[in-house]
Simulated scan of single mutants.
Amino acid sequence: MKTEEKPDIAWRVIGGLVGLGTAWAAKKVLGIAWVKITGKEPPIDTDSDEVGMAEAIGYAVLMGVGMQVAQIVVNKTAKKRYLAWKALKTPTR
């Protein structure tokens, strides 16, 4: 059985900060996209009687898929760059 290596502490910190930044930026960008597409502000309370079922589901789908795609792209890119940087810092024998 193959055991995976634990990520080092630097990557844990960097990954956490990248995740927070990505989530914040993606929420802002997706909110702007929602306004451009629908002409309305994003629904804050999707349980409200003022928000229709289709609008609530559409917003949930946009946010869920958009946030996940942003996290995947940014995390993979950040990890690739981090490992490349770490390889430059590691002396070769």
Rank of each mutant, 00 (worst) to 15 (best):
residue 1 M to H: 15
residue 2 K to T: 15
residue 3 T to K: 14
residue 3 T to Y: 15
residue 3 T to F: 15
residue 3 T to D: 15
residue 4 E to L: 15
residue 4 E to D: 10
residue 5 E to R: 15
residue 6 K to P: 02
residue 7 P to F: 12
residue 7 P to N: 11
residue 7 P to H: 02
residue 8 D to H: 13
residue 8 D to A: 12
residue 9 I to C: 03
residue 9 I to N: 08
residue 10 A to K: 13
residue 10 A to H: 08
residue 10 A to C: 13
residue 11 W to F: 06
residue 12 R to V: 08
residue 13 V to L: 09
residue 15 G to A: 10
residue 15 G to Q: 05
residue 15 G to T: 00
residue 17 L to K: 10
residue 19 G to I: 02
residue 21 G to D: 01
residue 21 G to L: 04
residue 21 G to M: 02
residue 21 G to F: 03
residue 21 G to V: 03
residue 22 T to S: 03
residue 23 A to W: 02
residue 25 A to N: 00
residue 29 V to A: 14
residue 29 V to T: 14
residue 29 V to K: 12
residue 30 L to S: 00
residue 30 L to P: 11
residue 32 I to R: 03
residue 32 I to L: 06
residue 33 A to S: 11
residue 33 A to D: 11
residue 33 A to W: 15
residue 33 A to C: 11
residue 33 A to F: 15
residue 33 A to V: 13
residue 34 W to N: 07
residue 34 W to Y: 14
residue 35 V to D: 01
residue 35 V to S: 05
residue 36 K to A: 14
residue 37 I to K: 06
residue 38 T to S: 13
residue 38 T to F: 13
residue 38 T to G: 05
residue 39 G to Q: 04
residue 40 K to L: 14
residue 41 E to H: 07
residue 42 P to L: 01
residue 42 P to Y: 07
residue 42 P to M: 09
residue 42 P to E: 06
residue 43 P to I: 10
residue 43 P to F: 09
residue 44 I to W: 01
residue 44 I to T: 15
residue 45 D to Q: 09
residue 46 T to G: 12
residue 47 D to T: 07
residue 47 D to G: 11
residue 48 S to Q: 08
residue 48 S to I: 09
residue 49 D to K: 14
residue 49 D to G: 14
residue 49 D to P: 11
residue 50 E to R: 15
residue 51 V to A: 09
residue 51 V to M: 10
residue 52 G to F: 04
residue 52 G to D: 10
residue 52 G to S: 11
residue 53 M to D: 08
residue 53 M to Y: 10
residue 53 M to I: 08
residue 53 M to L: 11
residue 54 A to G: 03
residue 54 A to H: 08
residue 55 E to C: 06
residue 56 A to F: 04
residue 56 A to Y: 07
residue 56 A to H: 03
residue 57 I to E: 11
residue 57 I to P: 04
residue 59 Y to S: 07
residue 59 Y to M: 05
residue 60 A to N: 08
residue 61 V to P: 06
residue 61 V to G: 04
residue 62 L to K: 02
residue 62 L to V: 11
residue 62 L to T: 15
residue 64 G to T: 04
residue 64 G to E: 07
residue 64 G to P: 00
residue 64 G to K: 03
residue 65 V to W: 05
residue 65 V to E: 07
residue 66 G to Y: 03
residue 66 G to W: 01
residue 67 M to S: 10
residue 69 V to G: 01
residue 69 V to K: 05
residue 69 V to E: 05
residue 70 A to P: 04
residue 70 A to H: 05
residue 71 Q to S: 15
residue 71 Q to G: 05
residue 72 I to G: 04
residue 72 I to M: 11
residue 74 V to N: 06
residue 74 V to A: 13
residue 74 V to D: 01
residue 75 N to H: 12
residue 76 K to I: 09
residue 77 T to I: 05
residue 77 T to N: 08
residue 78 A to V: 09
residue 79 K to E: 09
residue 79 K to L: 10
residue 79 K to M: 06
residue 79 K to G: 02
residue 81 R to N: 06
residue 81 R to Q: 09
residue 81 R to M: 10
residue 82 Y to H: 08
residue 82 Y to P: 01
residue 82 Y to M: 02
residue 83 L to Y: 02
residue 84 A to I: 00
residue 86 K to S: 04
residue 86 K to P: 00
residue 86 K to I: 03
residue 87 A to E: 05
residue 87 A to Q: 04
residue 87 A to K: 11
residue 88 L to E: 08
residue 89 K to T: 00
residue 90 T to N: 00
residue 90 T to P: 01
residue 90 T to M: 06
residue 92 T to A: 08
residue 92 T to F: 07
residue 93 R to A: 13
residue 93 R to F: 06
